[in-house]
Design a protein around this nucleic acid. Sequence first.
RNA 1: GGCCCGUUCGUCUAUCGGCUAGGACAUCUCCCUUUCACGGAGGAAAGACGGGUUCGAUUCCCGUACGGGCUACCA
Length: 512
Amino acid sequence: MNSRKVRVRFAPSPTGGLHLGGVRTVLFNYLFAKQHGGDFILRIEDTDQTRFVPGAEAYIFNTLNWCGLTPDESPVHGGPFAPYRQSERKASYRQYAEELVKNGYAYYAFDTPEELEQMRAQFKTAENPSPQYNQQIRIKMRNSLTLDAATVAQLLKDGVPHVIRIKMPEQETVHFTDMIRGEVSFHTSQVDDKVLLKADGMPTYHLAVVVDDYLMQISHAFRGEEWLPSAPVHLLLWKYLGWEAQMPQWAHLPLILKPEGNGKLSKRDGDRLGFPVFAMDWTDPKSNELTIGFKERGFLPEAFVNLLAMLGWNDGTDQEIFSLDELVQKFSIERVHKAGAKFDYEKAKWFNHEWIKRTEARRLLPAVKEILAADRMMVTDDALLEKIINLVKERCTLLTDFTQQASFFFALPAEMDTAAVKPKWDDKKNLFFTELIRSFQLSTLWEAAGLETTFKELAAANQLKPGELMLPLRIMLVGGKYGPGVFDIAAILGKEETIRRITHTLSLLEHA
RNA sequence: GGCCCGUUCGUCUAUCGGCUAGGACAUCUCCCUUUCACGGAGGAAAGACGGGUUCGAUUCCCGUACGGGCUACCA
């Protein structure tokens, strides 16, 4: 259809943490671009100066970096179409708005916020709870359509605050082909006269997105479904500005919904239901309130990207685990679902579990080290840690699970679940372990299989079932009813430490 | 309210007119394991409703219902 270079953009407004749905939009943009050998541009849409949040832009970059979705062009990466922050492009928008006015596609409006409020109050009825600045209303307002030319000229000359609004045509049907939804159409009589240029001289999203997509030669525009209703405004702007031939192809992505059904997923749902919604931790600079992120919850970026991709897309087979590279290869926008998807945290965790299981210990090492360090466990022996990771990773759903699964290798268990053995504890068992200590002391070869043999032979000699003794040994070494095979643990702990822990617990049981 | 979009197991989804409607998560049963997991076997579980079109509809069309989005000088 068009053979020009694929250029896509993600255009967030830096007002806080990056929502999971936002990251998915990035992902689909990225996949599409990379698959077609195109460029992925990050453009910051900071046209609302009242919503500036310090740190939000840096957060976006950190998040993309963590996910491995690096832009080719952005405020920090630079590029041939700089600047990539709309606030820095402010000067370029007015001319286009003025051009629209000159050609009769837009008009000046001098209504104050109070007047607008008044208008809404005045026309508000039960049937029409939110009156719009549309074809019926605009003739009742103060704008260059109702005021005579001289008055308008004077107002302009006096520097009276005003906006520029698009003049929606009366009887037209605007339609386009959405890459996901197919044919979509709107009747212009139902669309209001959106503000294009604000009184502060900044463009609204509607103008900025069209101008910048044009200037930056964007070929495909992917965004959330919540933008669908304003699509006719954008379509018309492309046409009125004379750029129709260069208009990108649109794709409106389905929304990510709350687990229990009603509405799109929000940060609040995560807080309420106990799962992350933001990609990474976000601390609101005003309230200092911390919102947990997937990263800090213990998700691998590979898993995060994978689960996001599967929310609304599949390759038509039963495959569910995809690497980023694989996604780049197999992704197709046509296979993206139309309907919104309810977010299922259980399934999200499953993806992470799968990725932990299939990721090499060596690559898990830095993250695990960090997690243990957060628990005051400084591990210096990488080789040892790697061995431990391999031993326990299949029972870790989140990276943070390594705290429980691995820390007993490095420190005496903080809690000793002696209650689990005490009810069935007797002198016979006590004797057995005393003897076990002795034979462990004598053993020259310290490895799992050998220890198990020693253990079982000794049990037989004492006429005890090994099964009755395994749990006590586990408690002695681990502190609780979890962890990998006991003899594997003993092998890693080493002779001295193993004996020390058995002795220690024995005395605990005696004095309890 | 208006406009727009959507609708297959509880959840994510496969199906592109003829299927015993498949898979995954969760759930249940069993096996493995005298910890917790992993793994294995099996079970229960779905086409919103009503009309068409058709030899035949989950699949195409139209209504209805339900769900969602938008309705700011926010994106």
